[in-house]
Amino acid sequence: MKLVVGVQKRFIQNIYWTISLLCFFFLLNSCAIDTDKKVLYFAHSLPTTHPVHKGIVAMKEGLEKKSNGKLEVKIFPDGQLGTEREVLELLQIGSVAMTKVSAASMSNFAPAYQVTSIPYLFRDRDHLFNVLEGDVGKELLESSSAYLLRGLCFYDAGARSFYAKKKPVKTPQDLDGMKIRTMNDQMSVDMVNTLGGSATPMAYGELYTALQQNVVDGAENNIPSFVTSNHYEVCKYYTFDEHTMVPDVVVIGTKFWDTLNEQEQAWLQEAADESVEKQKQYWKETVAENMVVLKKANVEFLYPDKTQFSIKVTPVMEKMMQDEKMKKVIEKILAE
């Protein structure tokens, strides 16, 4: 009986959320009617204190200045309009214009993005952005247009590392038997499982409670996300193994993009490109500030021999290279 009631309750909640969202979009559209102005609704899942949100604000300001107010951006942070996947689907149907998502989330829509999640593919930050701002990056951004999602630029999302609640992770062996939350991305799951952990895909918004209640033993993410999510309150061990450097992607739905004329498209692309350097600086500043916060909170930092981790996850890259197209891209990145 309890199960039936629970199912009915979730069903009613889903209906309520759907109706509320439809009403919300109706209100947005009714407020956006202006023959001299186009409004771009930009939804994402991060808090306003995050350096990526600050980069989005820089893009908004740049676009509105370039267009003399003809193009206006309204930002909806904190997952107000749904998860990354849900917002990408809203872009595809034209209900929302833009978003920022992890390249890992994009790979669920445009497979070419999987290459950005391969562990230890990028040697360092300079290597990463040499690739992203070169031919490979342009090809990736263009590849998603076939799925109604046009990539505009990449934002710095740092390096992802493990953090744990009960014990430090010094070697891959320390992950044995540990339940590690991952993104809902096959590459992330394969990486954790190959290292010996037990990958547990889970929505980011559910993770804090899951850590508190020992549903998972740890997770992996960058320093700003570790801090803004308050996961450091629960997990006191952060290991700088830096297994992946998965960038964020600024995306516009092709349905909205096609409503812009050539000049408006040029303004938007220019504003996105110019915001990249500002966002990188915001990222550096935020990491420095966050490290101070974590030290005061008595978080223990560990700096392991990354070679142990990179060797153990070699099968993940080898599996990807079985695809001839992916192999060519990987070889091009390694040669950069």
Rank of each mutant, 00 (worst) to 15 (best):
N68C: 12
D323F: 08
N68F: 09
G253D: 08
L334Y: 06
V101G: 11
V73N: 08
K37M: 13
M178I: 00
G82Q: 10
E86F: 12
E233C: 02
P168I: 00
L149P: 05
A43S: 14
Q186Y: 04
R123N: 10
S188G: 12
V189W: 06
G196I: 00
Q212L: 14
L152A: 02
K312E: 08
K236H: 04
P201C: 03
K170L: 13
P201S: 01
L46A: 10
V192K: 09
F154H: 09
K296F: 05
E242H: 12
Q265L: 04
L149R: 12
L294H: 05
M320V: 09
Y120D: 05
R181I: 00
K328S: 12
A157H: 11
E331M: 13
S95R: 15
I19A: 11
A297V: 11
V234E: 07
S30K: 13
W267K: 01
V216L: 01
D241V: 04
P172V: 01
C31K: 12
L22E: 12
I12D: 09
G158A: 03
V73C: 10
T239E: 08
Y41T: 04
H127W: 07
N29Q: 14
S161M: 06
D135S: 14
R160T: 03
I333A: 03
S144A: 12
C153M: 11
N261T: 08
E274F: 01
K319D: 13
S275H: 03
M320A: 14
V215P: 02
L302R: 01
S20L: 09
K167Y: 00
K138I: 01
K66W: 03
T18H: 13
A288P: 08
S198Q: 06
Y155S: 04
D36C: 07
L128K: 15
V227H: 09
K327Y: 13
T307S: 11
A104Y: 07
F122R: 08
K74L: 15
L28A: 02
D190E: 10
E274N: 11
F162C: 00
G134M: 03
Q269W: 07
L175T: 02
L141H: 07
L148Q: 14
D124I: 04
K236A: 06
V276W: 11
G79K: 06
V101P: 01
S229D: 09
V5Q: 10
G94W: 07
A32D: 15
H50L: 08
D185L: 00
Q263L: 10
D305K: 10
L3I: 12
G197I: 04
P304W: 03
Y41P: 02
V227D: 12
C31W: 09
D174N: 08
F162R: 00
P172E: 01
Y113D: 07
T244E: 11
K325D: 14
S30Q: 13
L40S: 06
T35G: 05
L175Q: 07
D217G: 08
L175I: 05
A271S: 14
I223K: 07
K65L: 11
G218A: 04
N14A: 15
V5Y: 06
L88H: 06
M187D: 05
G94Y: 12
S198H: 00
V316S: 10
G253N: 05
I311F: 02
V216C: 01
S95P: 00
D176E: 13
Q269K: 15
R85Q: 14
P172C: 00
K284F: 15
G196W: 05
Y163L: 02
M1A: 13
R85S: 15
T182H: 07
Q173K: 10
E72Q: 15
